[in-house]
């Protein structure tokens, strides 16, 4: 399953997509995120599964454009720590 966390508003589209089929539950993405946006939790979108997967914390979902801003300088942007830390390549940002 691809879980798209985030939103679209007048100023643009801001989603962090987590592919739960690729996510191996290792949790490497959690500590590398400076504002600690991610967590490992039961997959709430597949209530009959028992798998633990990465997810964007609920209280952060409506402001990722702002919370992620320090990792996304207006110019000279490097690799995003969460994306770089994910070995199976389960995390993608839409912006």
């Amino acid at each position: 399953m691809i879980a798209n966390y985030g939103y679209k508003d007048g100023s643009g589209e801001f989603f962090i997509a987590i592919d739960t089929d690729k996510c191996n539950g290792c949790g490497d993405c959690v500590p590398v995120c400076p504002p600690r946006l991610l967590e490992m939790a039961a997959d709430e979108y597949d209530p009959l599964s028992e798998k633990t997967v990465a997810a964007v914390r609920e209280e952060e979902r409506k402001k990722i454009k702002y919370t992620c801003a320090p990792c996304k300088p207006a110019s000279g942007r490097g690799a995003l720590p969460c994306v770089a830390a994910c070995e199976p390549g389960a995390i993608a940002h839409s912006w």
Binding site: M1, I2, A3, N4, G6, Y7, K8, F15, K62
Partner: peptide, 15 residues
Amino acid sequence: GKVSNFLMNDKCAAG
């Protein structure tokens, strides 16, 4: 009826 891809927009009132 199992979810394979989703998004939810509850941040912005438009839409």
